[in-house]
Simulated assay, not measured.
Amino acid sequence: MTIEIGTLIYQGKAKGVYETDDPQKVVVEFRDDITAGNGAKKDNLSEKGFWNSIISAKLFEILEEARIRTQYVELIKPGLMLSKKLEMIPLEVITRNIAAGSLLKRYPFEPKQTFEPPIIQIDYKSDEYGDPMLNDDIAIALGLIDEYRLKIIKETTLRINKVLKDFLESKGILFPDFKIEFGYDADGNIVLGDEISPDTCRFWDMETCDTLDKDLFRQGESGVLDAYKKVASMILDDEDKEKWNI
Rank of each mutant, 00 (worst) to 15 (best):
I235W: 02
Y72C: 02
M88G: 02
F50A: 03
Q71K: 14
D136S: 14
K85L: 10
L59Y: 06
S83Q: 13
T157L: 07
D146V: 05
P198G: 05
L134N: 09
K241M: 15
I196Q: 08
F178P: 00
E4V: 12
A57E: 00
G37D: 02
G79I: 01
F203V: 04
I153C: 06
F50C: 06
I68Y: 09
D146H: 06
E147C: 04
Q71I: 00
I145Q: 01
K85F: 05
D205T: 10
Y72V: 09
L45P: 01
N189Q: 08
Y129K: 15
D187Y: 11
E128G: 04
L142M: 15
F178W: 13
E116D: 15
L150P: 02
R67D: 14
L144R: 09
F217H: 06
L134Q: 09
M206N: 09
G183S: 08
G79C: 02
F178S: 13
W204R: 08
N44V: 13
S233G: 06
N97R: 13
Y129G: 05
Y72H: 15
D21L: 09
K41L: 11
F203R: 07
D199A: 09
D194E: 07
D146C: 01
T114G: 03
W204C: 03
E155R: 13
A186N: 12
L8V: 07
K84F: 06
I89W: 02
M234Y: 11
I120Y: 05
Y107T: 09
T200I: 04
W51L: 15
N245E: 15
G12N: 13
A141N: 15
K42M: 02
Q24E: 14
M234N: 12
